[in-house]
Design a protein around this nucleic acid. Structure first.
Lengths: 185, 185
DNA sequence: TTCCTTTTTGAGTATATGCTCACTTTTGAG
DNA sequence: CTCAAAAGTGAGCATATACTCAAAAAGGAA
C-alpha cells in the first residue's frame, strides 16, 4: 500500500495519533476525526493506508501486547527481579503503550472478542513466566504456592501501573523494587 | 420527577441496565438504545426520568465510588485486615459495581474531567485510610514507609480486581487474605 | 521531460446516536 | 367516579461517525 516515502510517513503519523488517543482517551475518544486532526490528514488519506479504523487500532493494540512481553524468546532463564525490571522498563520507556495495554486489559469495549482473548492469553503466559522464575529461585515452593505468588506479584505490578495512570507521581520503579525485596518463601 | 410507583420502578430498571452495561461493555457500549432495550422502555420514558444519558451514568458512577469506600463514617479504628476485608466484600457482593469502578479508575474516557478528579480524590483518601491503619498497627513505621506500603497494598488489591475482571476464576478473597499475612514490618 | 503510480483532498453517503415532543395511557388522591 | 398529574410511546430531528469516491497533486523511474 505505502510504497513511497510520503505514504510511509503518513502511516507512522496515523499510528502515533492512534497510540496517543487510545492511551489518553480510550476507545471512545479515538474517533476518525480525532485521528485525522491529530495526524493532520483527511479521511481519504487514512483509508488509502488502512482498510478500517479497526485495523489501525488493532495494529496499535498488538504493538502494546507485544511490547509488554518481558521475554519474547522465552529463554526461561530470567529471575523474578529480571521480569519485574522488564515490566518497569516497558512502563518507563513506553508509557503511552503501557496505558494502551491497561485500557485493553480492563476491556475497553473491544468490538471483537478475539482481542480480549488475546489479552487474556498473554496475561496467562506472563503468570507462567513468573511462576517458572519463582520455582527456579525457590525450588522448595509447591507449584500452587508459586502460582499464587506469581499472580500476586503480577497483580501488584498491574495495580501500580493503574495507580500511576491515575497519579503520574507514583514511583512505579521504586515500588516494584520494594516488591521484589518482599518476595521470600 | 418519579412520584408514583411505576416511575420509581422504571428508574430502578434504567439504573440496573446502566450498571450492567457500564460494567460489561464500558462507556462505548452504554448507548441510549442499549439502555432502553435492556430496561425495556422507549427513549421518551428515559428522558421523563433523567435529564440526559450522562446524568444516569454519573448516578451509577457515584454509586460505585461510594460503595468502594470501606469506612464511610471514617471512624479511624479499622485494622488493615478490616480494610482489605471490606474491599473484598465489596467486590464479592457487588461485582458489577466493582467492574464499573475499575473501568472508571482506568479513565474510560469520561467526558467530564470532574469525574476523573473525583475518582482520584477518592483513591487518595483510600491510601490515607490504609496508611493510618498501618501506623496504628505498626507504630515504629515511618510515615513515608507506611504510605509506600499502603500504596503497594492498594495496588495489589486493585490489580487482583483487574485480574479477576479478566479471569473470573481468580480467587480475590484468598489472595487478599494472603496479602494481609505478608504485611509485616 | 514523460507518464504511470502513489498519495492527498474534501465533499458526500449511510447509519448510529442523543434527544425532543405531541400525544396516549395509567395512576391514585379527593 | 373524576380528573389532573405522572408515566409511557414512538416517529422524528440534529448531529456525529465511519467510510467512499472522483478528481487533483505529488512522486519517481525511464
Amino acid at each position: 500500500m505505502a510504497r513511497y516515502q510520503p505514504g510511509i510517513e503518513t502511516r507512522k503519523r496515523i499510528l502515533t495519533a492512534v497510540r496517543h488517543l487510545l492511551g489518553e482517551a480510550g476507545m471512545e475518544g479515538t474517533t476518525l476525526k480525532a485521528i485525522c486532526d491529530r495526524a493532520d490528514i483527511q479521511p481519504g488519506s487514512f483509508y488509502n493506508l488502512f482498510a478500517s479504523k479497526e485495523e489501525a487500532i488493532l495494529s496499535v493494540v498488538r504493538e502494546a501486547v507485544t511490547a509488554v512481553d518481558p521475554d519474547p524468546d522465552h529463554r526461561g532463564t530470567d529471575t523474578v527481579a529480571d521480569l519485574v525490571e522488564a515490566y518497569v522498563a516497558f512502563v518507563t520507556d513506553q508509557p503511552v503503550l503501557a496505558k494502551v495495554y491497561l485500557k485493553m486489559a480492563v476491556g475497553g469495549g473491544m468490538s471483537d472478542d478475539h482481542l480480549t482473548d488475546r489479552v487474556l492469553a498473554h496475561h496467562r503466559r506472563r503468570i507462567e513466566r513468573f511462576t517458572e522464575a519463582l520455582l527456579r529461585e525457590y525450588p522448595d515452593l509447591s507449584d500452587m504456592d508459586a502460582r499464587r505468588s506469581a499472580e500476586r506479584i503480577l497483580a501488584t505490578l498491574n495495580g501500580l501501573v493503574l495507580q500511576w495512570s491515575l497519579d503520574p507521581e507514583t514511583d512505579v520503579a521504586g515500588q516494584a523494587r520494594a516488591l521484589v525485596a518482599t518476595v521470600r518463601t
